[in-house]
């Protein structure tokens, strides 16, 4: 990343309410970011909105899709008059209008035709609604470039975010309890590297700096396709494991399917059951869930605005945190179960 840019008084006034949350330094870092967003899907639209409002330096959106009627559910920056035109071209002006300070670029080519060198102009990549093969390829590139990568997608009432930040250091502020926070490993993937105590308005606080290690998408797929105890590190009791949302194995199973194969209730279910076995998740999680599995399949490739808003909000928030090195990032998979309103995090 290049050196943080200075903010004008006008920018400070505009971003006032968020600078009060994450500070000027973080806002400057956000302004330095060059982000690539793949696909202006519903969730892509939400992410674009949130990042442009947040004041990122530049946002590039690549999307080769033409507008169809099905897009008129969560993609609120496209125009009804533009049916048949490129989504990203239809939406460009309205997105730019949100915040003229952001350098917005759009591309209408197929992401799969882009060479690894092309990605080197960005310092963070977000893919939305891509199939496994594309995610694997792009994550491979982001790993080579050593830049953070996010993948997200919606499935009707549910949605997911996968994160590969490779290695990430962040600092968060917490109220100090009687016992000082100790440095050292918290989980196999996360450690506290330093703790700094200070007082503010006569209250004791700590600045805790953590370092997290991430898995690539390839490792992630491998980890739930073989016997693994990973989940048990954070889901420490039988009760917690038993309460895991069926949306997790279903989402993982559908993510791992090749686009060519059509999902059926049986194929999805048997794959999900296998994933539960691998991850030591009790099989009861999927018991009597045939109706849910059926609707999960029926909702495949469908976008729903509230889910899009939540997933897009969570992802963009994490991106902003990561750019500013603030707060604890999510490591490495989060799903929203829109039926139960739960949003669990898993480290796989």
């Amino acid at each position: 990343m290049s050196a943080p840019k200075e903010l004008s008084n006008e920018e400070i006034a505009l971003y006032d309410r968020q600078i009060r949350l994450w500070g000027l330094e973080a806002q400057r870092k956000i302004k330095t970011a060059h982000i690539l967003l793949i696909n202006l899907s519903a969730v892509g639209t939400e992410i674009a909105k949130n990042l442009v409002l947040g004041g990122v330096g530049s946002l590039s959106i690549i999307d080769n899709h033409d507008i169809t009627e099905a897009d008129f559910s969560g993609q609120y920056y496209i125009s009804e008059d533009d049916c048949g035109k490129k989504r990203v071209e239809s939406a460009q002006e309205r997105i730019q209008d949100l915040n003229p300070r952001v350098d917005l670029n759009v591309f209408t080519d197929d992401i799969n035709t882009k060479e690894p060198e092309w990605f080197s102009q960005f310092n963070l990549v977000i893919s939305t609604e891509l199939a496994k093969e594309s995610i694997l390829r792009i994550n491979n590139v982001t790993r080579q470039l050593n830049i953070p990568f996010y993948a997200t997608g919606l499935n009707g009432l549910s949605g997911y975010v996968f994160l590969d930040l490779i290695e990430h250091t962040a600092t968060y502020k917490k109220e100090k309890s009687n016992i000082s926070t100790k440095t050292g490993k918290v989980f196999s993937f996360s450690e506290i590297v330093s703790v700094e105590s200070f007082t503010e308005n006569n209250q004791p606080f700590e600045n805790v700096t953590t370092k997290d290690h991430y898995k690539s998408f390839k490792q992630f797929l491998e980890n739930f396709n073989k016997q693994s105890e990973n989940i048990k590190e954070t889901y420490t009791t039988k009760r917690k494991l038993k309460r895991i949302s069926p949306i997790l194995p279903l989402t993982l199973a559908s993510l791992d399917f090749n686009q060519a194969n059509k999902l059926t209730i049986d194929s999805l279910k048997s794959k999900a059951v296998k994933i539960c076995e691998n991850l030591s998740i009790p099989s009861t999680v999927l018991e009597n869930k045939d109706q849910l599995i059926e609707s999960f399949i029926a909702q495949q490739n469908h976008e729903f605005a509230p889910v899009s808003a939540i997933i897009g909000g969570v992802l963009a928030q994490d991106v902003i945190n990561v750019l500013g090195n603030k707060n604890k990032p999510i490591n490495n998979f989060i799903v929203l179960d829109g039926l139960s309103g739960e949003m669990p995090i898993f480290t796989i």
């Binding site: 600078i19 009060r20 949130n50 947040g54 509230p306 939540i310 897009g312 909000g313 969570v314 963009a316």
Partner: peptide, 29 residues
Amino acid sequence: KFDIKQIAGNIIPAIATTNSIISGFSALA
């Protein structure tokens, strides 16, 4: 001045993402 404005004006920090998430949950509810 930035900090005093916050104290004197009881300014509560506010961001797009939290509003987006919470509204999404309200709509789902």
